[in-house]
Design a protein around this nucleic acid. Structure first.
Length: 444
RNA sequence: GCCCAGGUGGUGUAGCCCGGUCUAACAUCCGAGCCUGUCGAGCUCGGGCCCCGGGUUCAAAUCCCGGCCUGGGCGCCA
């Protein structure tokens, strides 16, 4: 309406001096410049309260009618939710304001005006369903709880990098556009690569293994792609994987790194995101080492003893993981999986080649990570490929490397979002993904 | 891909079984107004909805069929 003709203010030389959480009563009398989005305008006639929010929280702006020109006052009164404003003013301790502090403005800039009505409620009173929220994701991300999730995610990623760097791992970036599958198993998205057929990487597997023969200890944090038509709350077609691979190591070495890494990262989260965690998952406890270790055989026995219909050699479905997850508090490893359930590059167990030098890390009902000792002898790899009906010729570019000094190595891959789901206590992986890609969603 | 549940204002729900009293209700929201201490502000007035197509019937938000979309479970997979 009148907003269409309204002249917006320029940012000019205004720059932020405080985030909302830095407006504290002990700064009584200090000048401040703050920016943010209008959460609410409470117009009581002679006095107007604007609740301004930024990524760190909310602060109350208290406007006395006498302090502003009538025209300006009218503009302010009509500010819509989620409009963008800047406020210059004085921080004032207040016994009346609930937070104990408010800002008395000397000047206000209206930088942008949001249309009404909003497509989703951003006040937190009535939560739209996930589908609608994802359609309007950027608006959705102005809701406190959402920001909390991604602040924790940020801490997690940072801490993971820090831990791996401190332990001698080099960060690598492997190609996401490939000529052929790197694992077999999951379906791949095809890409037209200048007329040639190519695929989106499902994992960095073969690359990270190859890189152990020069960098020895490598890691990658990146998005990968699976073309499976998943329809679950814990799968995405584009997901973030944390991968490590390490030369001169076996399963137990990388299991221990995984365990220590998770504890380290979660300690960082509890230290840096105390408020966020308290809000999202008040009962969260950092697990303690060592994590429980079950063999696959033991896991199956537990399930069978509970009347769960499963036989040796079968993969454990989510419903089975739920049962075991209820038994075990916190994360737990399942090791020694049947070789038939694992990909070709996993090393068979010496004592029993029906089993593998593998492990999964589960937490509650979710599979968080999986890994193991890899085969580093070319002939054994080819033998495994053949057994699984995969054509070794397709893997030739990689197999060649095994001719020239591939060290024994081990590693794992972890689903970052799955770990985040557990930490933030959400039940849909899309909640912890900024712009999720699933079977249906390609936008935004 | 299979099974089950559902689609009602911008958002979230009620109504549907047992068709008419639905001119569709409630909250939030949006708009106009009152109020100098609100903080889930309050008050007055106003606004806005039955997924699409077909059928049954005197009559369909309500029953039936098809489609599309969504949620849950399973499968495939990490």
């Amino acid at each position: 309406m009148s907003w269409a003709n309204m002249k917006l203010d320029e940012l000019g030389d205004w720059r932020r001096t405080h985030f909302s959480n830095q407006i504290t009563a002990d700064k009584d009398g200090e000048p401040t410049t703050i920016f943010g989005w209008v959460d609410e305008v409470r117009d009581l006639g002679g006095i107007i309260f604007i609740i301004l929010k930024d990524r760190e929280g909310k602060v109350q702006i208290t406007i006395n009618k006498r302090d502003f020109h009538k025209d300006r006052l009218n503009d302010i009164r009509k500010l819509t939710r989620e409009s963008v404003i800047g406020v210059k003013g004085i921080i004032k301790r207040s016994v009346i304001a609930k937070s104990g502090v408010e800002v008395i403005p000397t000047d206000i800039k209206i930088l942008n005006v949001a249309k009404t009505p909003l497509p989703i409620d951003t006040s937190g009173k009535i939560s739209a369903n996930l589908e609608k929220r994802l359609d309007m994701r950027v608006l959705d991300l102005r809701i406190k709880e959402r920001i909390y999730i991604f602040k924790i995610k940020n801490t997690l990623i940072n801490a993971i990098r820090e831990y791996l760097q401190n332990h001698g791992f080099m960060e690598v970036f492997t190609p996401k556009i490939l000529a052929t599958a790197t694992e077999g198993g999951a379906a791949l998205f095809s890409v037209n690569y200048f007329g040639r057929s190519a695929f989106l990487a499902q994992s960095p597997q073969l690359y990270k293994e190859a890189l152990t023969s020069s960098f020895e200890k490598v890691y990658e944090i990146s998005q990968f792609y699976r073309a499976e038509e998943f329809d679950t709350s814990y799968h995405l077609n584009e997901f973030i994987s944390v991968d490590i691979e390490m030369a001169f190591a076996e399963r137990q070495d990388v299991m221990s790194i995984l365990e220590q890494l998770i504890i380290y990262a979660l300690e960082k989260v509890t230290a840096n995101n105390e408020n966020e965690l308290k809000f999202l998952n008040p009962n969260f406890k950092i697990p303690t080492a060592p994590f429980k270790i079950l063999t696959y055989k033991e896991a199956i026995e537990i399930l069978r003893s509970k009347g769960f219909d499963i036989s040796m050699g079968e993969d454990i479905p989510v419903s089975g993981n739920k049962l075991i997850g209820n038994e075990v508090n916190g994360p737990y490893f399942i090791i020694d999986w049947p070789l038939s359930l694992k990909p070709f590059y996993i090393k068979p167990k010496k004592e029993n080649p029906e089993l593998s030098e593998s492990f999964d890390l589960n937490w509650s009902w979710l599979e968080i990570a999986s890994g193991g000792t890899r085969i580093h002898i070319k002939e054994q790899l080819i033998e495994r490929l053949n057994k699984l009906g995969l054509n070794p010729e397709k893997f030739e570019p990689f197999l060649t490397y095994y001719d020239y000094g591939m060290p024994p190595h081990a590693g794992w891959g972890m689903g970052l979002q799955r770990l985040l789901m557990i930490v933030t206590n959400v039940n849909d992986i899309r909640e912890v993904t900024l712009f999720p890609r699933d079977k249906r969603r390609l936008i935004p």
